[in-house]
């Protein structure tokens, strides 16, 4: 029990349970499988981005540029499959390749020129996005291929409501689930993953211990790029339109979700479970407000309050812990 209270995740889970209970009391439709699958599907885009952000935060850095990377990957992918055709695998490959390349550019600047990560990625956000808009002219893309649309409608299994409405586990959701599992294995069970934690905990010690800092940095930022690329693809699958201005601007919201889940901006701390909880909390808030017929105008107010309360609570906990620590064993 005491051990549970040490974990940030426990508190987030508690809040989620309380909110869910309140929402369910007001509108029982909240706690239906149909609603659940629906919410999970629509949040797979944010969810995948959050996985990438978790990696960067654990490594002790920050990435702001991932929204631009997602946009560029999505746009390039859409243009290519429309112009040259292809199938869903080429779409995946394209989005992933663009994401990884742009992530590698970030990593190169950060590693070789020692530029603070936040500055680097704010700059590259502007560069990636600016160039995309100039080249594309900001045009929206509607005419996505039929197979692209068809893929988005695939369900791994289908259920039926009493009224005969079909629902189930969407292929889009399963992409998210797959990503989370792979990411979890990397973080928990590979040398690389432990290296990311070690680097975030103490860069100097990691270097002395013999971790390959160069490779780890390159991996972290290209992985975030890859996640951004996949998220871009997923978002295109979800809305079936590619609009250059639909993703950029959301970067701080995603970071907020990850931080809610317990990842620290100081590095070295954070878990995928926490990140999922953070995304879940935000998803529930949004979905619950709709179901409770609260005006969506209030959405940001609630999210903002939750974030402030959450970070203030962790800060307060940290301080009381430091205060309670016994400096001298007085006899």
């Amino acid at each position: 029990m005491k051990n549970l209270l040490k974990h940030h995740e426990t508190y987030v889970l508690l809040v989620i349970i309380i909110f869910s209970a309140i929402i369910t009391v007001i509108n029982p439709r909240f706690l239906t499988l149909e609603n659940f699958f629906d919410v999970v599907k629509s949040y797979s885009f944010i969810g995948i981005l959050a996985v990438g952000v978790t990696f960067v935060l654990i490594s002790g850095g920050i990435d702001i540029s991932f929204t631009a990377v997602a946009t560029v990957a999505q746009y390039v992918m859409a243009v290519m499959i429309i112009r040259y055709g292809g199938n869903i695998f080429t779409a995946f490959l394209l989005a992933a390749a663009v994401g990884i390349s742009l992530g590698l550019i970030n990593a190169t600047l950060i590693y070789f020129f020692n530029i603070p990560t936040i500055i680097t990625t704010i700059a590259t956000l502007n560069i990636y996005y600016g160039i995309l808009i100039v080249i594309s002219g900001g045009k929206w893309i509607y005419a996505l291929p039929g197979w692209f649309r068809a893929f988005a409608d695939i369900r791994l299994f289908t259920l039926c409501t009493d009224e005969g409405i079909k629902y189930g586990l969407s292929i889009i959701t399963s992409i998210w689930i797959l990503v989370v599992i792979i990411a979890w294995v990397i973080l928990r069970y590979t040398k690389l993953g432990r290296g990311i934690y070690a680097m975030g905990g103490s860069m100097n010690a990691a270097r002395r211990a013999g971790f390959n800092i160069f490779r780890t940095q390159m991996f972290v930022y290209s992985f975030t790029g890859l996640m951004a690329g996949l998220a871009g693809l997923v978002q295109a699958l979800l809305v079936q339109t590619v609009a250059p201005n639909s993703i950029v601007g959301k970067e701080l919201d995603v970071i907020a979700a990850v931080v809610l889940g317990g990842a620290s901006l100081a590095g070295g701390v954070g878990t995928l479970f926490g990140t999922i909880l953070g995304v879940t909390l935000i998803a529930i808030m949004s979905n619950g407000m709709t179901l409770m017929r609260v005006s969506s105008f209030w959405y940001n107010v609630f999210i903002g309050l939750i974030i402030i309360l959450s970070v203030a609570f962790s800060a307060y906990q940290r301080r009381t812990k430091a205060k309670r620590a016994i400096a001298v064993e007085v006899e």
Partner: peptide, 29 residues
């Protein structure tokens, strides 16, 4: 070293076995 070069965010077990982890050929833990 004087600063011990430990990883404050990792467990005792992981800190102790770290050199072995790095030295091992396997990519997995």
């Amino acid at each position: 070293y004087q600063d011990l070069s430990l990883f404050p965010n990792l467990t005792v077990a992981e800190n102790i076995s770290l050199s072995q982890t790095i030295a091992s050929r396997s990519r997995f833990i």
